[in-house]
Nucleic acid binder design. Structure first.
Lengths: 354, 354
DNA sequence: CGCCTTTACACAATCGTTTGGGTAAGCAGC
DNA sequence: GCTGCTTACCCAAACGATTGTGTAAAGGCG
């Protein structure tokens, strides 16, 4: 592991071989092979000398040469909408951990949730000859996926799912149901949804889960109360403006399918004189590290982002090895905090400004 | 660009050559060389046929083979404390953009701000034969840097600087000064600092800049008012607890050298019955996208994170090409928002609970 | 028409590994 | 002493590109 010393060029197999007066192929077999092949390659004395010298010289095989020969790069491509989204960044941390454990390296690129860039970045990764791809930004109805499959490229989805393709995701439907149960039990009857981007399965599933459960409980949820929006704070702010500006009695609770959208919405509500947690309940999704630490702590559904990343990587490894894999949906958990802990006020108590 | 079709193995130079009945080396020269060498390699008619066929077959050179021959991988290693920190993630986005423009790919790894992991991850990247490293997590007094230099490894620092090594950073000293000026002019005289991790130049410089300017303005800032802390929300919360718990009159303003620490602190202040922006001013650093969108919008020093990432990559490219480079410090800008817009209340008006 | 210079290529070595085949030496058994 | 089996190696051909050097053919010039 200690490659110190100011030697310019890295040590090669040939260097080791010539120093020991044996053939490079022998060195290769000793160093590379799992005992079955290593036996028969060299006497145990020679093998020991080889291993000792390799360690001493800090030999590490050239991955380029190795890849050229073996047609495997042990590199993976990861495409996400944007790494500055903490949700995807956390999933990536999971990928990186699992990849490191399995001697894989990863390239990450941002697609900015554009289908064009998605395709471009995928091609760049494939030109790099990655062994497989992890796609964290799949759009509903993507035509990239069938293409990749036709080209026999190993890949798995992460974060967002797509029918017919293996994915590691949160069980977003359940997540939506948890929030519906919580708000209903707290006594809310008029609610609105900040639903996210309609091309993302996360948004669709969380919304669908909430909606279905809400109706099963006997609640009403008109289409006009479901606002599709961007996933970031500004998206949440804009959606909240829409909600506040709608005619009729305002909702007593809002479910935003993303913490950042929830935070944006909280800002808007406050600007309109509403106290979150008192005048209006807000629930987010993902339970990012921020949620619990906000001035008004935000109720949120915790999705196991790190584990989703790990699972995605492990699934991809299996796909690469030709195994069949099943999608996994990891179970989320709701954390109720101040932003939605109180029961709704009745009409006379509300302080809606506009 | 369109590599579709279900052909299993990628097209090689040899494939193109044999299809055209010419030698691979000719194809290589036509495709690779910048016109000076391409002239003399083939007639313009042949060259055109080569280019057409390459496009048609979707030829893309095997990077492993190319690297093996040229001893350049066109891959860069990036090490950051954690990618789930939006500051580093944004810088990485800058790196990725600049890298893509220059036909480089990047590996990113998290060091979790541990010097051991830093070294381990660097070795992994070097074993991958990256052409250079971007280090976003340098600790004061790091011994990794001299080692890398002794081994002639091209690298640059990002985010944090270190004397004697090229870096792309925010001018954090100026950032600290901006905050000092702002708080002083707003009339604050008792302030506290949430100073961040003492091994990070960002924390040290922002603190030093603030401190020096504050004293130049005639202010007092005892050591007990400078609280070193983690960079995240919990770190901010803990530091704020310390501040609130200190004997003597409480400060009227707090400068946290990081937005997340500031957000954590805001939570603590609120829990103690203080209204941020009224009872106590808070200023953060980095102007992450969240700052302006918080329920109480947070004043913050905007550091050009994306540009810092871009610059770091461009600097590294020059280092790799053997040019000398100078460190760059990019100028920050203060955005004053509600969290620190009001003048301090005098004693009688304050509502300090504890 | 012979010589010299281009033009337009081809040849072969090389980068560092892996891997399917040798093969020489040593030994056991008949 | 010959056959046959291990043992412990070596040899050489890949993998897909790059690049220094060679060399026929074509064309220009006197």
């Amino acid at each position: 592991m200690d490659l110190s010393g100011s030697s310019r060029a890295p040590i090669t197999l040939k260097d080791l071989a010539s120093e020991l007066g044996i053939h490079p192929s022998t060195v290769s077999r000793v160093l590379h092979s799992t005992s079955d092949v290593a036996k028969g390659a060299a006497s145990s004395a020679t093998a020991q000398k080889v291993r000792d010298l390799a360690r001493e010289r800090g030999y590490s095989p050239d991955p380029q040469a190795k890849s050229l020969r073996t047609r495997r790069t042990r590199a993976l491509g990861v495409i996400v909408p944007r790494l500055s989204d903490i949700v995807l960044a956390t999933m990536y941390e999971g990928i990186e951990e699992a990849a490191a454990e399995n001697n894989y390296s990863t390239f990450v690129m941002n697609s900015h949730d554009s289908t064009d860039e998605q395709r471009r970045k995928a091609e760049i990764m494939l030109a790099r000859r990655v062994d497989g791809l992890i796609l964290g930004d799949v759009h509903a109805g993507s035509d990239l996926l069938p293409d990749l499959r036709a080209r026999h490229i190993p890949f798995v989805l992460m974060n967002r799912r797509h029918p017919g393709f293996p994915s590691a995701t949160c069980d977003d439907v359940v997540g939506g149901e948890l929030v519906a149960d919580h708000l209903w039990q707290a006594g809310h009857r008029r609610v609105a949804l900040i639903a996210g981007e309609p091309y993302a399965s996360t948004a669709l599933d969380r919304t669908a889960g909430f909606r279905q459960r809400w109706r099963d409980l006997g609640g009403e949820l008109p289409d006009s109360s479901v606002i599709w929006s961007r996933f970031d704070t500004e998206g949440g702010r804009d959606a909240a403006e829409t909600i506040v500006g709608q005619p009729g009695p305002a909702p007593t609770a809002v479910f935003a399918v993303n913490d950042f959208a929830a935070i944006g919405a909280m800002g808007t509500f406050r600007a309109h004189g509403l106290t979150v947690g008192l005048d209006i309940a807000v629930v987010g999704f993902n339970d990012t590290s921020l949620a619990a630490q906000l001035p008004i702590p935000l109720s949120s559904v915790r999705s196991p982002m790190f584990q989703i990343g790990r699972q995605a990587m492990l699934m991809l490894r299996r796909v690469i090895n030709g195994e069949r894999v099943e999608s996994v949906r990891m179970t989320p958990e709701l954390f109720v905090r101040e932003s939605s802990a109180a029961a709704p006020l009745d009409e006379s108590q509300r302080s809606l400004a506009s």
